[in-house]
């Protein structure tokens, strides 16, 4: 009888494990565009999860209490402590990241943006390829970063947006410039490519390399 009960229990647990693989929640990796309407739905679902799950143990903390990076670390801790699925933890995280910033852009780092400890020649070389290729940056900013009718020069010290330091350049590539043709992640580049092309633009504008 004990063996039968044990076997039934194991079957139930195995069924739960195998049958629950299809998450009922949206997949965070599905969308790329930060302004996609699905993003708003994800943030809304994350907000609801936040309000429902946190209060099971403690008073919900305000999103503005923490920086983006701190919320990332905390939610990894809370995934274990609060028995959340990874998908649930990421939805709550994305809501918190969006909510501690004026613009509803998840992952915006503000002062957490870092200049790489070393902008290497390899990084710059890869960025040049992105600029001239997948990023399609040349189409508006010119093949020599000289600018054009709809986009400013990137080769001098004059900046319409930001201060021209690496963090601001990267932020523009990640977030775009509202009201202009500058889109976030132009050409659908990855964040790694965004960092590469930001390094290239920074290096050119600061005279570290030729175009």
């Amino acid at each position: 009888m004990r063996l039968l009960a044990s076997s039934l229990l194991l079957f139930v647990i195995a069924y739960l494990g195998l049958a629950s693989q299809t998450s009922v929640l949206p997949e965070p990796g599905d969308e790329i565009a930060l302004s996609d309407t699905t993003l708003a739905a994800r943030i809304g679902l994350g907000a609801e999860l936040f309000s429902r799950t946190c209060q099971r143990c403690h008073n919900p903390r305000g999103p503005a209490e923490r920086t983006d990076r701190e919320w990332v670390i905390i939610m990894q801790h809370m995934q274990t402590r609060a028995n959340l699925t990874r998908g649930q933890a990421r939805l709550v995280r994305d809501f918190l990241l969006a909510s501690n910033d004026a613009d509803l852009v998840p992952g915006r780092l503000r002062s957490d943006l870092e200049t790489p400890t070393e902008i290497t020649d390899d990084l710059i070389a890869k960025g040049r390829l992105v600029y001239q290729g997948a990023g399609t940056c040349f189409a508006c900013h010119g093949g020599n970063l000289e600018g054009g009718p709809i986009a400013p020069s990137l080769s001098d010290a004059q900046w319409k947006n930001g201060s021209g330091d690496y963090a601001d350049i990267l932020g523009i590539i990640r977030n775009g410039v509202p009201g202009t043709a500058m889109a976030a992640y132009p050409g659908g580049i990855t964040d790694e490519q965004a960092q590469q092309v930001a390094a290239y633009v920074w290096a050119v504008s600061h005279g570290r390399v030729d175009r």
């Binding site: 997949e27 990796g29 790329i32 998840p106």
Partner: peptide
């Protein structure tokens, strides 16, 4: 043996790519 869901198998999610 349980296969990873798509968000894990496909690499970083939206917010993941922003952070070290």
């Amino acid at each position: 043996i349980v296969p990873a869901s798509g968000q894990e198998a496909d690499g970083p999610s939206d917010a993941d790519r922003f952070f070290p």
